[in-house]
Amino acid sequence: MTRRPIGYYVHHHGAGHRARAGAIAAVSDWPITLLGTGVGEAGIDLPDDRPLSGRFDGVDGSEGRPAALHYAPIDHDGVRLRVARVAQWIATERPALMVVDVSVEMAMLARLASVPTICVRLNGERNDVPHLEAFRGAVALLAPFHVDLERESTPTWVRERTRYLPGITTAVAGGVPPSGRILVVIGRGGAPSNGARLAEAARACPNVQWRVIGPVSPVDDCPANLDIAGWVEDAAHAIAAADVVIGGAGDGLVGAVMAADRPFICIPEARPFGEQQATASGMARLGAAVVLENWPKAAAWPSLLARAKALPSPPRQRLHDPRGAQMAAIWLGEQAAAA
């Protein structure tokens, strides 16, 4: 019997959505088709729906937008073509299920096109009308984080409809020779990191080698123990080999750090709905990371690195499931079969 495909909508902000989709698709025995801007030959590449300004925070700022939507700009060719492309794919392929990671509007579109949906539910304060209505219209919700990181304010009915699936990652889990380096990870979803500030941190720890991966502003006087590597292909390997990892609280980085069980200093970045702050506060509460509100003064780094190394492994190990991607693939297959 031919299985109707699972559609997996991939949001284009940051790298975490694409990485999560890829990790699940790689181990699924159910056919999964990715749909999103920038997926290229890996699936259905959709027209870009971002504003002409290039700035995108998930809210269009227009007046008169229906309360059940976040982003519905008027007279945007990319949005029109995007909606038409997804609707055409649904009509042609008749998917058994649509996973939406993440978009209130795509979840509503799939539901209007008579497809059962699974909404990926990220952490943070998502009790606004658009999120709750999308959650209500879905057959189930997938949270790519441990239940212990859940916010107390999340409604009971949302929790009851949620399958918590931490560990959806292809990150390296062990067996990597230690590098002895401090690794600073800058994600794709935010602004470049301050190069001068990184140089000051490295100078405060002269006997330790620092490496920075991701976008960084220029460093005029780079100390010898600081390596500005830019984008790298082996980020997961670098994380697994690090003495201490420093970075934000995006799902991708947190998942990789927990998988590798590395000491973590987390400085959450501003994101819509307080997503990173929610995850960071949960890790702090559980003792899985040293969490800071802001980048510290250079003189604080030696003691902060020592604090991170002193944290025990069990809280980090608790937040990771080494079979996270496989469990997600099995569960989505079950949902598709039942649809």
Rank of each mutant, 00 (worst) to 15 (best):
D77A: 11
E105M: 14
I118T: 04
V158P: 12
M106W: 09
G58E: 10
C119H: 07
R161Y: 05
A110E: 04
N127L: 12
G78R: 03
S53H: 10
R121Y: 06
V102S: 09
A110H: 04
A134C: 03
E152R: 15
A96I: 01
M106N: 10
H146C: 09
F145G: 02
V104D: 07
L165D: 01
A138Q: 10
T154H: 03
R136T: 13
T154I: 14
R111L: 04
H146V: 11
R65S: 14
V120C: 12
R163D: 07
A68N: 11
I118P: 00
R126W: 09
E152S: 13
L122M: 10
L81A: 08
P66Y: 02
G124R: 11
P144N: 00
G137T: 01
I118H: 02
V115D: 03
R136I: 14
P166L: 02
P144T: 00
P155A: 11
E160T: 15
V100W: 05
L69T: 11
D128P: 08
D128L: 04
E63G: 05
V100N: 03
S53E: 04
R126V: 06
R126N: 05
R121F: 07
G78N: 04
R111D: 12
R159W: 04
E125H: 11
N127R: 10
V139G: 15
I118Y: 02
D57L: 05
A91S: 14
G124K: 09
P73W: 00
R94N: 07
A87E: 05
P66V: 05
L109W: 13
R121P: 14
L97R: 03
D101A: 02
F145W: 04
M106E: 06
R65Q: 15
V86I: 15
R163P: 12
P66E: 05
V86E: 03
D148R: 07
Q88D: 13
P130Y: 13
L132W: 13
L112E: 11
H146G: 12
D60A: 01
A110P: 13
L97M: 01
L112H: 11
E105K: 13
A67H: 12
T92W: 08
S114E: 04
V102F: 08
R159M: 11
S53Y: 04
A140H: 11
F145C: 01
A140M: 05
E93F: 09
V120A: 02
G137I: 00
V79P: 09
R82W: 01
G137R: 09
R65H: 05
R80A: 12
L109Q: 05
P66G: 00
L142F: 07
V129F: 08
P166Y: 04
T154E: 14
S103V: 14
A140I: 03
P73D: 00
R82M: 05
R55T: 13
R82S: 15
R85A: 15
D128R: 09
T154G: 11
T117N: 02
V102N: 05
L81M: 08
S153C: 14
A113Q: 06
R161K: 15
V86Q: 00
R163T: 07
G124F: 13
D75E: 08
P73M: 00
Q88G: 13
A84F: 08
Y164T: 04
L142A: 10
P166D: 07
I90N: 06
V99D: 05
E152G: 12
E105C: 14
L81I: 01
R151P: 13
R111N: 06
